[in-house]
Amino acid sequence: MLEGVNTTTIVTELGLDPALERHMRFAAELRTGLTLVEERLQEVLRSPGHPELTEAATHLVRAGGKRLRPLMALAGAAFGDGRDEAISAAVLVELVHVATLYHDDVMDEAPMRHGVTSANSLWGNKKAVLLGDYVLACAARVGAGLGDYALRSQAETFGRLVRGQFLETTGPFEDCGRHAPYEHHIQVMADKSASLIAMAGRLGAQVSGADERTIETLGQYGELIGVAFQISDDVLDISASTTDLGKSAGTDLREGIVTLPMLHALDDEGPGAARLREIIGHGPVPDPAVRQEALGLLRDSAGVMRALAEAHGYAAKAKDLALSLPDRPARALLVGLSAFVVDRGE
């Protein structure tokens, strides 16, 4: 999303108006803030006297990424007085996110992440798990400097992240009837993806002294945009190439994770849907040839378009919430972001 962290990219991709001086000023401030976040991430993860740990712990940070969560924290801070603590808030949420990536790659046995070899492939699963734990410890140290609100937010959000991962592992068809498949998947997305994005907006606003209504609205916006973002990611896992993704396409199929576009495709009629039920019904799809067949069937199904329609629905609600915020350049950015997160999946 924001690789390169330059003002032109921020304005072009996120809906700020280049004709408005205040928008351009805000974009420049965001660029500066995101640059500081990158520097601070490296600094926080450095382990003096242990270069091997520093190298491994900064591996995914150096690989880059969308930096959506730091962006949300800095946007939230723009509704307050923009104090320096906003950089720490942005660093905190990104560290929690990076820690989950180390753990996720172990669970998924992922060979790539952000276009580079995954930590588990380089150093093995045991070290990758420990790296995730180390990054979480660094995040806690940053959170401690921001006070009780940040620590509570971090604890509550991490609990939701773990719950989402657990529910995803359990699967919609093994949940003892507590949730229908669609409800189950929305809950997974809300916990595993949206919760941290919501925390980012709230925490950025809170540390910058924004009012309670704005903090709450940013949290609600983050929940909605996070679900839209994850649906878009699920679609991309089906429709995009491995090169575009920066990781292996069809990861969800390989791991036996049933996503929203898959659920819609499985509900279709006809031979394609029947074959998909036959393939996906057996759980993980490790065979590359069968996985490619399933990807082809999914791409030809109506499931992708139905999922994208739902993503647009969540994004539209997020946009309405953004428009209820005070009239600042950050509001325009959040409105533009609501379109960007779903357009990337099309």
Score class of each variant (00 low, 15 high):
Gly4Ala: 07
Thr8Ala: 13
Ile10Gly: 01
Arg25Gly: 06
Ala27Thr: 03
Gly33Val: 08
Glu39Tyr: 05
Leu41Glu: 04
Val44Leu: 10
Gly49Asn: 07
His50Ala: 14
Pro51His: 13
Ala56His: 10
Thr58Phe: 07
Gly65Pro: 00
Pro70Asn: 05
Ala77Thr: 04
Gly82Pro: 03
Ala89Met: 12
Val93Glu: 06
Ala99Cys: 13
Leu101Thr: 00
Asp104Asn: 11
Arg113His: 09
Leu122Glu: 13
Ala139Asp: 04
Ala140Ser: 15
Ala140Leu: 15
Gly143Asp: 14
Ala144Arg: 11
Ala144Ile: 14
Leu146Ala: 05
Tyr149Asp: 10
Arg152Thr: 13
Gln154Met: 15
Glu156Ile: 01
Glu156Ala: 08
Val162Asp: 02
Gln165Lys: 01
Phe166Ile: 08
Thr169Lys: 12
Asp175Gln: 12
Pro181Gln: 05
Tyr182His: 15
Glu183Asn: 02
Gln187Ser: 09
Ser193Val: 08
Met199Arg: 05
Arg202Gly: 02
Ala210His: 10
Asp211Val: 06
Glu216Asn: 10
Leu218Cys: 02
Gln220Ile: 10
Gly222Glu: 00
Val227Cys: 04
Ala228Leu: 05
Leu236Val: 02
Gly256Glu: 08
Ile257His: 07
Met262Ala: 05
Leu263Ser: 00
Gly270Cys: 12
Arg275Lys: 13
Arg275Gly: 11
His282Pro: 02
Val285Leu: 05
Asp300Arg: 15
Arg306Pro: 11
His312Glu: 15
Ala318Cys: 07
Ser324Lys: 13
Ser324Ala: 15
Pro329Ala: 07
Ala330Arg: 00
Leu333Cys: 03
Arg344Gln: 13
